[in-house]
Amino acid sequence: MSMMWVNGVATDVISASDRGFSYGDGIFTTIKVTNGVCHLLPDHLMRLQRGISALAIAQIDFDALLNQLCDVAKMLAQGVIKVVISRGVGQRGYSSVGCDSPTVVVSTSPLPSCYQAWQRDGIALGVSTVALGLNPLTAGIKHLNRLEQVLVKQQIDDNGWTDAVVLDCQACVIETNMANLFWRNGDKVYTPNLDFSGVKGLMRAQVKSALAAWAIEVVEDRFKLSSLTDADEIFITNCLMDVVPVVAIETKSYAIGSLTKRLIAHISHKDHV
């Protein structure tokens, strides 16, 4: 059962003049809930704060949001909470003058049941031909402008893929449509630099922290597709599915590596502590 609140009121109605609807002028985050507890809640709130600051959206009451998320998590027990913050209702045109009352939408949904099987068996990826644009002003932010991802998902659905590797307009690997990418080659782990495109995921940060603690070098740079496809092992990450092995990219197959298994166990342990 899904639930929704707009500015703390149980409703699924927002104004047609809301700038989130008109311009994608806002941010969001998706939170995994297990046993009535939000995973990585301080990180999610910090992500929202960073997004608000980056887009110069008026401040919201984060104490009230924290209390609401904790209350909703207890009601949900297990599933997903999504938080959307838009700049709010505005005048016609791009100007944000006078937009000082953000809209905060909290909604719930079930946690997809496929994630456990994906962690166990891995997934195959296609390679999308939809290129992401470069924009350092919004790179890394989980903003509401997701038309590029919509177009990639259309291609994924048309081809019957589970997910796809996505490149930027300079043919550098960025992410998959729903997750961040990591791969190991030899004793080093590689992940794309996201200063110009893509989303800097919270699980990505968790994985980088774990690898640093294990003294495993992580190389973050701009890589062509061949760097990824020549890897010894590949995995993807996001906050809902944690760490998932990649067992194929197009026609090339990969084994589920020992590092991937170690990370899956590590994150799972943290989730249940």
Results as ranks from 00 to 15, higher is better:
residue 89 V to L: 07
residue 51 G to F: 10
residue 104 V to H: 03
residue 7 N to F: 14
residue 88 G to E: 02
residue 9 V to S: 11
residue 122 G to E: 05
residue 79 G to H: 07
residue 49 Q to S: 14
residue 105 V to N: 01
residue 90 G to L: 04
residue 57 I to G: 03
residue 38 C to K: 04
residue 28 F to Q: 06
residue 36 G to C: 08
residue 66 L to G: 03
residue 61 D to I: 09
residue 47 R to I: 03
residue 26 G to V: 05
residue 1 M to A: 13
residue 44 H to G: 04
residue 112 P to S: 06
residue 20 G to M: 08
residue 103 T to R: 07
residue 32 K to V: 04
residue 118 W to T: 00
residue 103 T to E: 08
residue 18 D to N: 05
residue 2 S to W: 10
residue 10 A to W: 00
residue 87 R to G: 04
residue 63 D to K: 14
residue 3 M to F: 01
residue 95 S to I: 09
residue 79 G to Q: 02
residue 118 W to N: 03
residue 83 V to G: 01
residue 18 D to F: 04
residue 81 I to C: 06
residue 100 D to V: 09
residue 43 D to Y: 13
residue 55 L to P: 04
residue 26 G to D: 00
residue 119 Q to L: 08
residue 1 M to F: 00
residue 26 G to H: 05
residue 47 R to M: 02
residue 12 D to V: 00
residue 54 A to R: 15
residue 36 G to N: 07
residue 93 G to E: 11
residue 47 R to A: 07
residue 107 S to M: 12
residue 110 P to L: 15
residue 111 L to K: 02
residue 13 V to K: 15
residue 38 C to A: 13
residue 1 M to V: 13
residue 49 Q to Y: 10
residue 67 N to Y: 11
residue 34 T to P: 01
residue 77 A to K: 15
residue 96 S to A: 13
residue 88 G to S: 09
residue 11 T to L: 11
residue 46 M to N: 14
